[in-house]
């Protein structure tokens, strides 16, 4: 092989870059976040699987409906009324932002900017 040293160095760099995830993680990385679930209620606004995947879209729709369309009528789920709100709804049951929202968001590297304005429950 010509230019053996240069090509091998380049190859080594590429291979190491591709394999970063295989070296970077350790056993601690495998643990999923442990969340503190609400004790004062049995069910969320939507079924659990849907909440996990879609809660940001739900919040976004509510926000648009309230702030843009002025429609702040509460939503009715299973005969129970929920206000379309972040502070006055989600955080009423999920009383700990740190041990619920944040734990999961840190794991997925999401940083919702809502808390720039909205107030998180005091912890």
């Amino acid at each position: 092989m010509y230019d053996r040293v240069k090509i091998s160095t380049g190859l080594l760099v590429v291979v190491l870059l591709v394999l970063i995830p295989f070296f970077y993680n350790n056993d601690a990385s495998k643990a999923a976040p442990e969340l503190t679930m609400p004790t004062n209620a049995k069910a969320c606004v939507l079924p659990r699987a849907e909440m996990r995947a879609k809660h940001m879209q739900l919040l976004n729709t509510w926000r648009d409906e309230v702030v843009r369309k002025g429609d702040s009528r509460p939503v009715l789920v299973d005969g129970k009324e929920y206000p379309k709100s972040l502070q006055l709804n989600c955080m009423e049951c999920h009383t700990s932002k740190v041990n619920f929202c944040d734990k999961c968001h840190n794991y997925s590297s999401v940083r919702p900017y809502c808390w720039d304005c909205h107030l998180a429950p005091v912890e």
Partner: peptide, 28 residues
């Protein structure tokens, strides 16, 4: 977004990278 559960997907991805792959729960 139905069943696009990032937490489950990340657990699969990290499992792949640590050579202990697991599929937790249904993924879209």
């Amino acid at each position: 977004r139905s069943n696009v559960d990032i937490e489950a997907i990340k657990q699969l991805a990290i499992g792949l990278a640590t050579l202990h792959p697991t599929i937790v729960g249904p993924i879209s």
